[in-house]
């Protein structure tokens, strides 16, 4: 059974068919690439899965359960976390607080203890946050406001925050946008490490060095429709895909 299954998923914004009868099946443990030209419906697909925009038609199933139209907090509770194409952090909170609340949302939140649940959380949760800061390379910035971080640090914090909620499926919307080559390599390594640890990842990305190297399978969208699906090498050769990217090779396509 696929961990994520989209069935004839459709989203219309007025006359725009942002996502059009999309069928997709992501298997547990794989890194699945979702690519396509600008405006092809990648972000909308992520938003549909997360319950951020309402579904026009079709179905989203996660681990066999129908989550179509679920409120975002329920989708997260079900085990799906995401990052954003345009970084979204709580800029008024510190780096540490950004992670702490996310961590709490799965742990102390279920606690019977009033003080733990509403006020200060448990020591274990605090330790877990410290570990995550370490892993994200942000330990030195723990008391900084998220708004004051450098761009690359904000990206790392966003990923760390998604991971803090202990998802089984991670949706990454252009995590490499704006990164230099070195940072892309670091991200590549991080994604592989996550996969080793059993995470399933859907990677929306324009940076082909990353997509072609790290993904197991790729689906290509164009005008909301899936025009190709398969192994990275096959996608690279696919004439329909090359056509979609305005005649150029996939390798040269950048956002």
């Amino acid at each position: 059974m696929p961990i994520l299954e989209l069935t004839t998923l459709t989203k219309h914004f007025g006359g725009v068919h942002a996502v059009d009868e999309l069928d997709l099946a992501v298997e547990e443990g794989e890194i699945f690439g979702l690519i396509g030209p600008n405006g092809s419906g990648k972000s909308t697909t992520v938003n549909l899965i997360c319950g951020v925009v309402s579904v026009t038609a079709g179905r989203v199933a996660f681990e066999g359960r129908d989550i179509t139209g679920s409120a975002p907090h329920r989708v997260l509770a079900a085990g799906v976390a995401r990052t954003f194409q345009n970084i979204r952090l709580f800029g008024h909170l510190t780096v540490w607080q950004n992670l702490w609340v996310a961590q709490n949302s799965v742990e102390d939140r279920r606690s019977e203890n009033f003080a733990k649940r509403w006020f200060f959380g448990s020591g274990a949760t605090r330790d877990a946050v410290d570990q995550q800061l370490e892993f994200a390379g942000l330990a030195g910035k723990r008391n900084e406001l998220a708004a004051n971080l450098a761009f690359g640090e904000q990206r790392r914090l966003e990923l760390a925050r998604a991971l803090a909620t202990k998802p089984r499926l991670l949706l990454l919307d252009e995590p490499a946008a704006g990164m230099n080559l070195e940072e892309v390599h670091a991200l590549d390594g991080r994604l592989r490490a996550l996969q080793q640890a059993g995470m399933t990842i859907v990677l929306v990305e324009h940076v082909m060095e990353l997509v072609m190297g790290v993904t197991d399978r790729i689906a290509v969208l164009n005008f909301g429709r899936k025009i190709a699906e398969g192994l990275p090498a096959a996608i690279q050769e696919d004439p329909a895909v090359q056509q979609a990217y305005l005649g150029g090779g996939v390798e040269t396509a950048h956002a």
């Binding site: 997360c50 907090h73 989708v75 997260l76 979204r88 949302s105 939140r109």
Partner: peptide, 10 residues
């Protein structure tokens, strides 16, 4: 700051 993002923290 961002109610939708808060919702997405569960």
């Amino acid at each position: 700051e961002d109610p939708m993002l808060t919702e997405m923290q569960g």
